[in-house]
């Protein structure tokens, strides 16, 4: 396959995970440090179901998303009622526990050596359509009262409660959707790279997604997606040795966040209305 398409599939799949982090951390200010574990769970569960159990790809993905949603529910139950930093801590612990599980349950997961021989089922079409659908879903979510509730909770939780918002339920919904999205991204990645290993899903991966969200702009879906594509593409295009590459990458992020604390795009959103208007005007000119 063309190198750029291979890179593109990876970016598309990871961007779906970034969408999850955008909802959770960007919109709601909830710092999950174990978000990558959901990607790992999605990847491992769907891969094992397809390779070892022989289930169809779609069914396997669905099951992995359901399991991740259920786990998110349980983790949320234990951590979303209490102080915000406890949520970060509990999700962090959850992430470490999941990785330990991948590493130790060798008979099923292959342990530290990883799980290989996954069929290549993630076609370019599937990856790009999935990302488009993912963006559409989050866009729809943001056009409802959930965006207002998110911003309200992020800026003043007590006032949000008193205004009648069930803060716990809201956070739970967001956490579950984010987990399901991330799990889906994990499945796509697993059937793209055809190999998974525990260390891909550590807290540093999670933190990378958080950085991407703030780089692009936590208040802009467009910004987050552009940031995601730029930052995920950068390592592939910058042809230095890895370490220099990451240093340059970090430097860019530091500069952007220092100079433009609201992120690359601030609150600006791409909207199709001006384009449509332009189109209409042209039509009128023609007629």
């Amino acid at each position: 396959m063309d190198f750029y398409i291979v890179v593109g599939i990876g970016i598309a799949a990871n961007s779906i995970a970034v969408l999850g982090t955008f909802m959770l951390t960007g919109m709601n200010g909830l710092f999950s440090l174990g978000q990558a574990a959901f990607m790992g769970l999605g990847a491992y569960i769907s891969a094992i179901l397809v390779v070892n159990v022989g289930l169809p790809f779609a069914v396997a993905i669905l099951i992995s998303m359901l399991i991740c949603s259920a786990l998110a529910f349980l983790v949320g139950l234990a951590s979303l009622r209490i102080r915000q930093d406890f949520f970060a801590l509990v999700t962090f612990g959850f992430g470490q526990a999941v990785i330990a599980f991948f590493q130790e349950y060798v008979s099923v997961t292959g342990g530290a050596l990883g799980f290989s021989n996954i069929p290549n089922l993630t076609t370019p079409t599937l990856a790009f359509v999935s990302l488009a659908v993912g963006i559409f879903l989050v866009w729809g979510f943001r056009r409802s009262h959930f965006l207002r509730d998110s911003l309200a909770i992020r800026s003043n939780e007590l006032a949000a409660k008193v205004a009648g918002i069930n803060v716990f339920k809201h956070k739970m919904i967001v956490f579950i959707i984010a987990a399901a999205l991330t799990a889906y991204a994990g499945s796509l990645m697993a059937f793209h790279t055809r190999y998974v290993e525990p260390k891909m899903y550590g807290w540093i991966t999670t933190v990378t997604w958080i950085i991407i969200v703030f780089f692009g702009g936590r208040d802009s879906l467009t910004g987050t997606m552009v940031g995601s594509i730029l930052l995920l593409m950068a390592p592939e295009l910058l042809r230095f040795t890895t370490a220099y590459r990451i240093i340059l990458y970090c430097a860019i992020i530091l500069i952007i966040i220092n100079v433009r604390p609201k992120g690359l795009f601030g609150t600006w959103e791409l909207s199709i209305k001006p384009l449509l208007r332009l189109f209409k005007r042209k039509k009128q000119e023609v007629s």
């Binding site: 979510f141 409802s144 009262h145 959930f146 207002r148 509730d149 911003l151 309200a152 992020r154 800026s155 003043n156 007590l158 006032a159 949000a160 205004a163 009648g164 918002i165 069930n166 919904i173 959707i177 208040d219 609150t267």
Partner: peptide, 25 residues
């Protein structure tokens, strides 16, 4: 006073209606 950051007056007042929304996530 406890208002919400980066929200217009209209949006702030609308938050009070969120829980009445007839639809699910």
């Amino acid at each position: 006073i406890r208002l919400f950051q980066n929200m217009t007056v209209l949006e702030t007042v609308k938050t009070a209606y969120s829980w009445r929304a007839p639809y699910s996530a």
